[in-house]
Simulated assay, not measured.
Amino acid sequence: MSGTGFEGRGVIVTGAGSGIGRAAALEFAGQGAKVLVADLNKDSAEQVVKEIEEAGGVARAVVGDLSDPLVVDEVVAAAVDAFGGVDVLVNNAGVMDNMSALADTTDAEWERVIRVNLTAPFLLSRAVLPHMVAAGRGSIVFTASEASLRGSAAGAAYTASKHGIVGLTKSLAVMYRGQGIRTNAIAPGPTATSIQVDAERTAHGPGVIGPYIGLSGKVADPREQAAAIVFLASDAAGNVNGAILPVDFGWAAV
Rank of each mutant, 00 (worst) to 15 (best):
S2D: 14
G5D: 08
G8A: 09
R9F: 05
V13M: 05
A16W: 00
G21I: 04
R22T: 00
A23P: 12
A23G: 10
A24W: 00
A25E: 02
L26T: 01
A29L: 13
G32D: 02
K34H: 15
L36P: 05
L36F: 10
A38F: 08
Q47G: 08
V48F: 02
V48T: 03
V48R: 01
E51W: 00
A55V: 06
R60V: 00
D65P: 04
D65E: 09
S67D: 15
P69N: 13
V75H: 01
V76D: 04
A78F: 05
V80Y: 11
A82Y: 13
F83T: 01
G84R: 02
V88Q: 02
V90E: 10
D97L: 05
S100M: 00
A101M: 03
L102A: 10
D104S: 11
T105H: 06
T106S: 15
A108E: 15
L118I: 06
F122Q: 07
F122R: 04
L123M: 13
L124F: 07
R126L: 04
R126N: 12
V128P: 08
L129W: 03
P130V: 06
G136R: 15
R137C: 02
R137F: 02
F142A: 04
F142R: 03
T143A: 04
S145T: 12
R150P: 12
A156P: 09
A157K: 05
A160R: 02
S161I: 01
H163L: 09
G167S: 15
L168C: 03
L168M: 07
T169A: 09
S171C: 14
V174W: 05
Y176F: 13
G178L: 07
Q179I: 01
I181E: 10
I181H: 11
N184M: 03
A185V: 00
I186R: 08
P188W: 04
P190Q: 08
T191E: 05
S194D: 12
R201W: 05
A203S: 12
H204M: 12
P206S: 10
G207H: 14
P211T: 03
Y212C: 11
I213Q: 14
I213T: 14
G214Q: 14
K218T: 06
K218D: 12
V219F: 04
A220E: 07
R223A: 14
Q225C: 07
A226I: 08
F231K: 02
A233M: 02
S234C: 01
A236F: 09
A237R: 03
N239F: 03
V240C: 06
P246C: 11
P246N: 13
F249Q: 15
G250Y: 07
W251R: 11
V254P: 03
